[in-house]
Design a protein around this nucleic acid. Structure first.
Length: 417
DNA sequence: TCTGGGGTCCTAGGACCC
DNA sequence: TCTGGGGTCCTAGGACCC
C-alpha cells in the first residue's frame, strides 16, 4: 500500500482569522498589513480581484483601498498563532502525525487508497471545527503535493496528483510555480529556454546541477516523483533557531536606544526558549541600516558563542549588549534590529549531560520563570529586564484587532436575548 | 514621508593549517 | 625572503519559503 504526501493549507489565512470574529466581513474586501502597516501581507479574494498584489507597500495601493472600501487590519500574530494551533490539532485528529511547515500549512502522509469523497469529508470536518477555510493537495512527493494544493485552491478545495494525471499536467505548469524555484532560478532557466516543468524534468542531471546547484537537483527528483524527503524526518527535529526582529517606523542612530531595543528582543527570545524548555548555544545580533539607504551593505550582524547554552535573560542580555557595542557605528541610520538564537538544545538534555547538579540551573532561572508567569497574566507588557521598550514606541500598528482568544479582556461577549 | 517577520538551507570566501 | 596549493572550518549573506 503506497503513501501520498499531503499538504493542507489555510486559504487567505490572516484574513480568515480576522473574519472569524467579524462575520460581517465575509464576501467583503479585507487586507492585513505587516507590522509597521508597511505592506500588504494577506488578501481576501475580493482584494486579489482588485489587482492588489502580495507584499506591495501599502502607500502604493492606499487610493485603491479607499475607493474600494477595503477593511484593513494590522497583523495580529498572537491571534493567528492560536488559530493555527487549532487547525493543526484538527488535522492531526484526521490524519495522525503531521509536520507543521508554517503558520498556515502542514504536511502529512496518507494511504493512496484514500478516496476523493473521504478527502472532502476530512476537509469539511476541519472547516466545521475551526471556522477556517482550507485546501488539501496530494501527490507522490511534497513538491508535487504543493502544486496540487494550488490546484485545490483554484478548484473545489481538494486535488490529487496521481502518477498519470501528474505526467500529463507537467507541460502546462511553469517553473515559477514550483516550490523552491524562486525568481533567480526561474530567470536562469528561462535564459536556457526552459519554461515548463516538463522541460525541467527532461533536463540532464548534470546540467541541472550546473545551473541551480544541489537544490535544483533535489527539486528535479521530487518533480520526477522521487521523494528526497523521509516521511518522518521532522518528527523529532528541533527548531534550528528562534528569531525576534523588527524594523523601526523611523531611523535610529542612538546607541543606547538600540541597546534597549536589542534587550527586549533578547527577553522575548529567551522567554520563547524557556516556554519550550530549550537553551541557545549561540546568538546573532542584527543591526541593519535601511534596505534602501547608502549603508545597506554594511556589516549587519555579529554572532556570539555562549560559554554554555542558556535561556537566561540576564546572561543573554549582557552578551547581546556587548555585541551591539562592537557592531554599532555612529551616524549609520539604523532601520532594523533583532536577535537570532542558534545552536538550540533541549534543556533536559543539557542539564543531564553538562551540569552535575541540575538544581543550580533551575534556580538561576527562577527569576525568569517568575517574570514569565507575571507577563503571561498581564499580556506580556509589564516586566522587561534592562529595557524600557514597549511594543508601540517604535512601531506603528494602528489597526490591530483584539487578541480574542488569548487575552481575557479581549474575549468577545455574546448577549443572549 | 511610507517598503514585514520568522524560518531553513546553501555557498562563497576568509582564516588557518600543512 | 621566497609565498604554491589543497584541505578544513567558520561565518555572513543570499535564495527561498510562507
Amino acid at each position: 500500500m503506497g503513501r501520498y504526501y499531503g499538504v493542507l493549507d489555510c486559504n487567505n489565512f490572516f484574513v480568515s482569522c480576522e473574519r472569524l470574529f467579524r462575520p460581517d466581513l465575509l464576501k467583503r474586501p479585507v487586507a492585513v498589513l505587516s507590522s509597521n502597516d508597511g505592506c500588504v501581507v494577506a488578501r481576501s479574494e475580493e482584494i486579489k480581484a482588485m489587482g492588489i498584489s502580495m507584499g506591495v507597500p501599502y502607500f502604493q495601493v492606499k487610493d485603491i483601498c479607499d475607493k474600494g472600501r477595503v477593511t484593513l487590519f494590522s497583523s495580529n500574530f498572537t491571534l493567528y498563532r492560536d488559530i493555527s494551533d487549532r487547525v493543526m490539532q484538527a488535522l492531526k485528529k484526521e490524519v495522525g502525525e503531521i509536520e507543521k511547515y508554517s503558520i498556515d500549512e502542514a504536511f502529512f502522509t496518507i494511504s493512496t487508497e484514500v478516496t476523493k469523497e473521504e478527502l472532502f469529508e476530512i476537509r469539511k470536518r476541519i472547516i466545521q471545527t475551526t471556522g477556517i477555510p482550507v485546501s488539501i493537495g496530494l501527490g507522490e512527493t511534497k513538491t508535487i503535493a504543493k502544486i496540487a494544493s494550488k490546484m485545490a485552491k483554484k478548484g473545489d478545495g481538494v486535488f490529487v496528483f496521481g502518477p498519470d494525471n501528474w505526467q500529463r499536467a507537467t507541460m502546462d505548469i511553469s517553473c515559477g510555480e514550483v516550490w523552491g524555484l524562486g525568481r533567480q532560478a526561474t530567470t536562469k532557466l528561462k535564459q536556457n529556454n526552459i519554461n515548463t516543468v516538463k522541460e525541467f524534468i527532461e533536463l540532464p542531471l548534470d546540467r541541472v546541477r550546473k545551473l541551480l546547484g544541489v537544490m535544483g537537483e533535489r527539486i528535479q527528483f521530487e518533480l520526477r516523483g522521487v521523494s528526497v524527503h523521509q516521511p518522518d524526518e521532522h518528527k523529532f527535529r528541533l527548531k534550528q533557531s528562534i528569531t525576534s526582529t523588527r524594523s523601526f517606523a523611523k531611523v535610529i542612530t542612538n546607541r543606547l536606544e538600540l541597546e534597549s531595543i536589542i534587550s527586549s528582543h533578547v527577553a522575548l527570545c529567551a522567554s520563547r526558549l524557556r516556554k519550550d524548555r530549550l537553551l541557545a548555544g549561540s546568538m546573532t545580533i542584527i543591526l541593519r541600516a535601511g534596505r534602501f539607504s547608502d549603508f545597506a551593505h554594511r556589516r549587519g550582524s555579529e554572532e556570539v558563542l555562549l560559554l554554555y547554552p542558556s535561556a537566561e535573560t540576564s546572561v543573554l542580555t549582557k552578551e547581546a549588549i556587548r555585541a551591539v557595542r562592537n557592531l554599532y557605528e555612529s551616524g549609520v541610520p539604523y532601520k532594523k534590529a533583532g536577535i537570532v538564537m542558534g545552536d538550540i538544545v533541549p534543556f533536559d538534555f543539557v542539564s543531564q549531560t553538562l551540569f552535575s547538579d541540575k538544581e543550580s540551573l533551575e534556580t538561576d532561572q527562577s527569576l525568569d520563570s517568575l517574570t514569565d508567569s507575571i507577563n503571561q497574566k498581564f499580556d506580556g507588557n509589564l516586566i522587561h529586564l534592562a529595557s524600557d521598550f514597549n511594543n508601540n514606541q517604535y512601531s506603528k500598528a494602528k489597526l490591530r484587532s483584539q487578541s480574542y482568544t488569548t487575552k481575557w479582556k479581549d474575549i468577545p461577549s455574546v448577549k443572549a436575548k
